[in-house]
Design a protein around this nucleic acid. Structure first.
Length: 328
DNA sequence: AAAGGTCTCCGCCAGC
DNA sequence: ATGCTGGCGGAGACCT
């Protein structure tokens, strides 16, 4: 496994975006998993680099240092219209060609688009820039409703903070969700934000009192708590004294995802956690997570993680345990 | 492993 | 008209 993660910054690098991979990969977290990543902050242009905030910076790494990276991250550039240098573009293409993960945060997607890496693929970016990305890269299926997408080794993530979710997802792919959770806890953010960025898009009409928001959050909590009993959208609707139709609409609006799909995602999460941190047989795990059958859980694992539940456990169960996810 | 049955999702429209 | 609701139906996803 290639532990080298490189983030590329050029003139006008967005400070926050740049900081995300530094925070997730760049700190020594070998107490969580050893070895941790080897991180490089690479200057795409001749330093000093002037950031969007106005300070200048320099790092020891240049484009040549991308050559052996397993993961190449492009954080947001301040101006999406500013073309990336041919050298950078070639480096990104080469990275993808040799099977490295190529990742963009926020408007970094434009650089990937310029490199032709989004052609024919699904991608996302900051919702304010989605239309411009569509225009710039017409053969790309731009989905501005999700936090991040992967398509064939090319990862793109939505606005600003979604970059954190993206990076944690990479950690989860490499080391499982227990480790990703631990990192999330370190950074002091909630480990998962399921669903799209719809909840962060400005609503044309201002929503009513926030008590409504709270009650919806409570509904989600209750749903999570009763995953094991195989709760359905219908039951959820009736406990919330809502019609199924309205529940779906509310879900789509606030979570950005239809309820059953969200439920499947939550079941999946719970199952992953149980597989990692307990010795419960797979059948029990499926039941505890509320899957209709073991076969159904297995199918979902295969389609989302390309790995069967048993193999998932085999990969991550052996890791040093950091508690089951809730222990400080 | 595939086909047939069920569930899910979303546009549509009517009702308030 | 306006804006929210909820039932319906068909295409497609999901399950056995």
């Amino acid at each position: 496994v290639n532990r080298v993660v490189a983030a590329v910054v050029g003139q006008g690098a967005l400070t926050f975006d740049m900081a995300i991979p530094c925070e997730v990969f760049g700190l020594d977290r070998s107490d969580i998993v050893d070895p941790w990543y080897e991180f490089r902050l690479v200057c795409a242009d001749e330093p000093p680099i002037r950031t969007s905030t106005g300070f200048t910076m320099e790092t020891p790494f240049r484009l040549a240092d991308l050559a052996d990276a397993g993961t190449v991250i492009v954080p947001g550039w301040s101006d999406p219209d500013q073309a990336a240098s041919p050298d950078l573009i070639e480096a990104l293409r080469a990275a993808h060609r040799r099977g490295a993960r190529v990742v963009s945060l926020c408007t970094g997607a434009f650089v990937l688009a310029d490199a032709g890496l989004l052609r024919g693929r699904r991608a996302t970016t900051h919702w304010m820039y989605a239309d411009r990305l569509r225009a710039r890269s017409p053969h790309t299926d731009v989905d501005d409703r999700v936090l991040y997408v992967e398509d064939d080794g090319v990862f793109t993530s939505a606005g600003t903070a979604a970059g954190i979710d993206m990076c944690l997802h990479l950690v989860r792919m490499d080391h499982g969700s227990a480790v990703a959770n631990t990192v999330a806890r370190r950074i002091v953010i909630p480990p998962f934000r399921e669903g799209g960025q719809a909840q962060y898009v400005e609503q044309p009409v201002r929503r009513g009192g926030d008590s409504e928001e709270d009650s919806f959050a409570a509904l989600l909590d209750r749903a999570r708590a009763s995953l094991g009993s195989g709760i359905s959208a219908h039951q959820l609707a009736s406990t919330a004294h809502m019609s199924v139709r309205s529940l779906r609409r509310r879900f789509q609006q606030t979570v950005g995802l239809p309820p059953e799909q969200w439920l499947r995602g939550e079941r999946m999460r719970l199952a992953q956690q149980l597989l990692e941190s307990t010795d419960e047989p797979v059948e029990r795990v499926a039941a505890m997570a509320g899957f209709p059958s073991t076969a159904a859980m297995r199918a979902l694992f295969i389609s989302r993680l390309m790995v069967s539940p048993v193999r998932y456990r085999g990969t991550f169960r052996a890791l040093p345990r950091q508690g089951s996810g809730e222990i400080r």
